[in-house]
Structures are given as structure tokens and as C-alpha cells.
Design a protein around this nucleic acid. Structure first.
Lengths: 113, 113
DNA sequence: CCGGATCCAGGAGGATACTG
DNA sequence: CAGTATCCTCCTGGATCCGG
């Protein structure tokens, strides 16, 4: 669910969460850590996302100043997405998430049960 | 939307996200970093959450092995929530999130937490 | 190739009242 | 105190078609 409805409320943790809500935000940011990507490259890297949702999430990320969107007026169309400085500042958060996942889900994840 | 529907799919980042989805999961975990808390203590610390949602999120966190729930059979009832070892392992992630929020949202007031 | 527009279902999340 | 139980709204996110 979206945390966007509560922007402006709560503590810094809640405010931060509102920027990275949505089903794919973090994943998109994570993929962009490796460098600039075009729209369909992102689609291929995240097979489960639909183009509608990818577009939507990219727009929100852009609106929040976390990524940049560069359109090349040419045929065929070419749109490139990259992390903005603000987006790059999230790198520690994203990597912390990834490292935790690698450490806690990869080898023996059924531990919780 | 819940990420829980996609458990078992995608990369470790997506899998990790599925554990901390929901509007309040991270906030609850963050509050528990300071120590064991009772149900109503959590409610007071997170005023915007309803008891229904708090119960629900706590149940999911427990099911995912991130927190422990201890019921003291007495009157008045007493239920204490605390981070499990697995929950504690998320501390770096939660703190990374909080620090980013402090650094990027705090221009005016996000320091309150 | 990169989307926008529209339609739609489902469930996340809220309000309120009640209970052991 | 610590939840259940019900009802309800709205937004997320999927499917599909269309456009530049």
C-alpha cells in the first residue's frame, strides 16, 4: 500500500518510507545502482512488473527527485533513467536491504518456522 | 499493496521487501529497537496507527519471525512485544532508513523521532 | 520503443463498537 | 489491557487498447 497519503506526518522513518513505498521503488533503485538504464531494460530486469506500474513508479521516483529521466527526441524513442544525487544517497539503505536479504533469505530461510 | 503475494519470487531485495511491507512494519520495528514494549505503549508511540492495523502488523511480524509476543496470563492482561534475533538483524537496515530520513528530510522538523 | 488512457478487481487500511 | 468483529472506502496494481 502507498504511504504517500501520510506525507507530512509522523517521524523521519515514516517520512522516508513514504518515498520508497510502492511495490517496485526499491527494486528499481537497486537496479539503477549499476548504472543508467532504458525503460525496456528495466522491464527485462524486473520481469514481474507491468509497464503501467513501471511507468507509474518511475514517475513518482522522478517527482520525489530520486531519479532523473532523460528523453532523447529521436526515432526510435529513447528514454534513459538514472539515479539523481538524492537517489544515490539512498545507496546505503538499498544495500543494507540487499545484504540482509542475502544473509537471511539465501541459505536457510525457513528458520523463522 | 502487500508484497506478501509475491513471496518466493524475484531477487533477494524483493524478498526482503515482502517482510517489511505494510504501512507500519518498519516503524514498529524501529520503536522496538529501544526495548520491549506493550501493545498500548506501541499505540502511544505510533499515534496514527489503529488498533486493528497494529494488531495485524504485529501478527505478521510475529509470523515472519521478526518479533516475539509474550502473553502474561494475569489480570489485567499483559502482552509484551520484542525483537527476535532475526528482528535485531534488521537493525542496520532500519537505522540506515532513519539516518537517511534525518539527513534528507530534517531541514525543518523530521528529527522528532 | 516508450509509454498514456481506460476499465476493473482485490485487498490494504480506516472507523467504530464490542469482549475476555 | 489487549485485542475481535463488522462495515466501508479508496488506492494499488493488473489487463488491455491506443498513440507519438
Amino acid at each position: 500500500m502507498s504511504h504517500r497519503a501520510m506525507e507530512g506526518t509522523g517521524c523521519s522513518v515514516e517520512r522516508t518510507l513514504s518515498l520508497i513505498d510502492g511495490k517496485w521503488k526499491i527494486v528499481v533503485l537497486y537496479k539503477l545502482l549499476r548504472g543508467t538504464l532504458r525503460f525496456n531494460e528495466l522491464r527485462r530486469l524486473i520481469p514481474a512488473v507491468t509497464q503501467r506500474m513501471l511507468t507509474h513508479q518511475l514517475r513518482e521516483l522522478e517527482a520525489d527527485g530520486l531519479i532523473t529521466r532523460t528523453v532523447y527526441a529521436q526515432v526510435p524513442p529513447r528514454v534513459e533513467y538514472a539515479l539523481s544525487p538524492r537517489g544515490w544517497s539512498l545507496e546505503p539503505v538499498i544495500l543494507a536491504l540487499k545484504h540482509w536479504g542475502d544473509a537471511n533469505l539465501s541459505s536457510s530461510e525457513a528458520k523463522a518456522a
